[in-house]
Design a protein around this nucleic acid. Structure first.
Lengths: 154, 154
DNA sequence: TATTGTTATACTCTATAACTATA
DNA sequence: TATAGTTATAGAGTATAACAATA
């Protein structure tokens, strides 16, 4: 059998992970491995819609807002101002967003009609993904994940 | 005040994160953000010891084992065989590991005496880091984090 | 035939410094 | 003075294809 996440092929009756990998009980290490696995999975699903995770995240954040600037999106998503430039350029080239001048210095990033349609696809993908992710977690631990992760963010 | 993890400067009495960031309740999104924040923090701490996270992880895994090959380390840590090459080259150049031939095809990766000394430093850093990470999580959620993350790995 | 170690390459995310134009 | 948008660049992690040598 092949593991859904890791792709490893240990049999089900093998020793616990920690016996073969002494790091497998460390929360920080697990956090990185789990995030990498889950983001690889999400990336694959979004790739079918020709979007990167960062691009889909921007679409979800903008939604119907018409007041967000590039710098504000970056702050909310923890993306450097400089790194927003190529990201938004790709979304603009794909016809998913357009720029509405606020003044001569700032411009709002707004979804185009096509962008709104694509956002509906993104929402379907991410909702399915989030549901699948939660289903992998045993019920008794499930309600604790979001609060625990939020605590790590401050 | 500046947040330990995110570096953001929202005041303590601000609206809940989900009010300003509609993604803040999604477990997958939180998983990525939390992992990024924590790994940035760990990276900074290890940087003081001139080690990357991946390098420190390899040292922790090898420990006192003398039977691990590059390919096996890669499988355990989910690092591609090809990406192990520069990683081990850096550790070898730094005098932390050396290679012991197993046969004419394979070679074991083993810590040097200096590597063992540096591993002790790494262990101190990572144990402190893991403890700090857990302390950030409210007590009622704390015991659920590791099992939940392990479930995401398979 | 399958695996080990390796080279080469490329993509993504992330980070910093610096510049301009405007608030 | 501070901020918005941008350019350029670099570091780090990750991924694939391909090769020679050996199990």
């Amino acid at each position: 059998m092949t593991d859904f996440v890791t792709g490893s092929t240990h049999s089900a009756d093998a020793l616990p992970v920690s016996a073969v990998d002494p790091l497998a009980d460390l929360p920080g290490y697990l956090l990185r491995r789990a995030a990498n696995s889950m983001m690889a999975e999400l990336g694959t699903r979004l790739n079918a819609h020709e979007l990167r995770i960062s691009e889909a995240t921007v679409l979800l954040l903008i939604n119907d807002r018409t007041d967000l600037t590039s710098a504000e999106i970056g702050k909310l998503l923890e993306i450097q101002r400089a790194n927003m430039v190529p990201l938004l350029a790709r979304l603009e080239t794909a016809g998913l967003i357009h720029r509405v001048p606020i003044n001569r210095k700032s411009q709002a990033i707004v979804l185009t009609p096509h962008g709104r349609t694509r956002l509906d696809e993104v929402r379907a993908v991410t909702q399915k993904f989030e549901a699948d992710l939660l289903e992998r977690i045993p019920a008794q631990h499930r309600p604790h994940l979001v609060p625990a992760l939020q605590a790590l963010l401050g």
